[in-house]
Computed example of a mutant assay.
Amino acid sequence: MIFTGRGRTRFLDAVTDFETAVRERDGDRAQRAMQQIQRHFGDAEDDQLAQVGPRLAALLPEVPPGPRGMVAVLIGACVERGADAAVCAPYVFDGLAEALGVAGEFCERWAATGGGDFPAPDPDAADGDVLERVGQDAADGWFTLPQWEMASVAMLNRPAVRTALEPALRTGLLDALRAVQEASGHDFKCLRYALVVLDDEPLLALHRPTGTGYLLRMTGIGDNFQLHTLLADVLIGGGHVPGQAPSAQEAAVCRNAPGQVPTTGAFNLVTPGGEWVWNEGTPTDIPVVDDVRLLVLDPPPYKRGWPAGRFFPGMPGDLVLERVLGADETREWLERCAPPK
C-alpha cells in the first residue's frame, strides 16, 4: 500500500513535470516525464485521472506533432477512467483535424515521389527512406493517425460528445478522412464508424411479411449487426412479429453488457428501393424518406449467424419502440417501397 500511494503521488508529479517541460520546450525532460506518467498511470486514482485528462487536453496544442498523438491516447485513457470527455474532446478533435490534413499531404508527397505501397501507419515504420521522401511533418501526420483514431473513439464513445459535435466539424473530419482513405487504400474503419454514429434517431421499420410497421428510436448503434439483433429483440421478442427472438444475453451485449455471444439473423434488411442493407455497414446506410430513416424487413434469404455484441465495446447502444403504425399508414409506406433486389 505504501508503494501504491507513492506511485499515485509520482503520477501527479510526473504530469506537472511534463506540463512544465512542454511549456519550456525541453524535449528531453518532457520525454522523461512522459515515461514516468506511463509508468505510474495504473496507480492513479480515478479522481486524479479526472483532473489530469483536461489538463493534458489543454496542453495538447503546445505538444510537438510527433508525441502529440501519444498524449491524445493518454487523454483518451483518462476519459475511459472518468475524465470529462466533453471538456477534452474539442482539443482532441482539433488535433485529429490537423493530423488528417497533414496525412493528406503525406499521401500527395508519397504519390509525387514514386508512389508504391504505403507504409503501415505505425511510428515503427517511419524509416529514413520514408522521411526522405515526404519530410518529418508529413510523416508525423501519417504515422500518428492510429493514435488519433484511438483517442477520438474514446471521446465519441460518450453520447454527450457525439451530440455536441458541430455538423460542419463532423463533415470536415469525414471528408478529410475519406481523402486519406482513397489516396492510401488504408481504412481507418473505427474512426469512420464512430463519426457517423446516430443518436436519438427515428427509424421506421416495415415488416413486409406481416404488413406491419413500427416507429423506433436508435442511439449509439455502431453497426448493422448490432441494429439487426436489437430489431429482432424489440419486434420478435416484443411479440409484434413471428420468429425466433434473441436471448436476453444476446440483446444485453448489444446494449451495455460486456462480451459477445453467438446469434442468428432474423431478417433481411432492405432499403425502400429494394437494395440490401448489409450488416457490415452502419445505420447511416438506411435512406432518409420524409425525414425518417426507412427500413424494410424481409425474410432472410439464407441462415446467417454472427457474434452479437457492440462494434464499440465502450459505447452503450439502444433501440426502443415508440409506437406501432396503424394498418392504413403501414400500407401507404409499403406501397412506396420496391420489391427486394
Rank of each mutant, 00 (worst) to 15 (best):
P242H: 04
R68E: 03
R81D: 01
Q31P: 07
G104H: 02
V79S: 07
V241A: 00
R208N: 05
C107H: 01
V52F: 08
Q35W: 14
A232C: 12
T271C: 10
A176Y: 11
R192A: 12
N268H: 12
V161D: 00
L295A: 02
P167S: 03
G317Y: 02
V102I: 15
I2Q: 15
D328M: 07
P209V: 10
V87L: 10
L206P: 03
I236R: 06
L173A: 03
G76T: 04
V15T: 02
D285M: 06
G104Q: 03
R10D: 13
A120R: 12
G185K: 10
Q136S: 13
R10G: 09
C78F: 03
P316K: 05
L169T: 12
G5N: 14
T4H: 14
E105K: 09
M1F: 11
L325M: 05
I286L: 01
I2T: 15
A266D: 01
T171L: 07
D13L: 13
L294F: 09
P90N: 03
C88V: 05
N268I: 03
H207Y: 00
C190P: 07
Q36N: 11
T20E: 13
A232V: 03
D175K: 09
L195E: 08
G66N: 11
V270T: 12
G238E: 05
H207N: 02
P313R: 04
R32E: 15
M218A: 15
D17P: 02
P299Q: 08
A33L: 05
I37Y: 04
Q48H: 02
E98L: 14
R310F: 00
Q51M: 14
M315Q: 15
A21S: 05
D117N: 11
V292C: 06
L231N: 01
E201Y: 12
Q249M: 10
T282Q: 13
G7D: 00
G213H: 03
M34T: 12
A176N: 10
A58F: 03
T229H: 09
Q181G: 04
P262H: 05
D127Y: 08
F267G: 01
Q31Y: 12
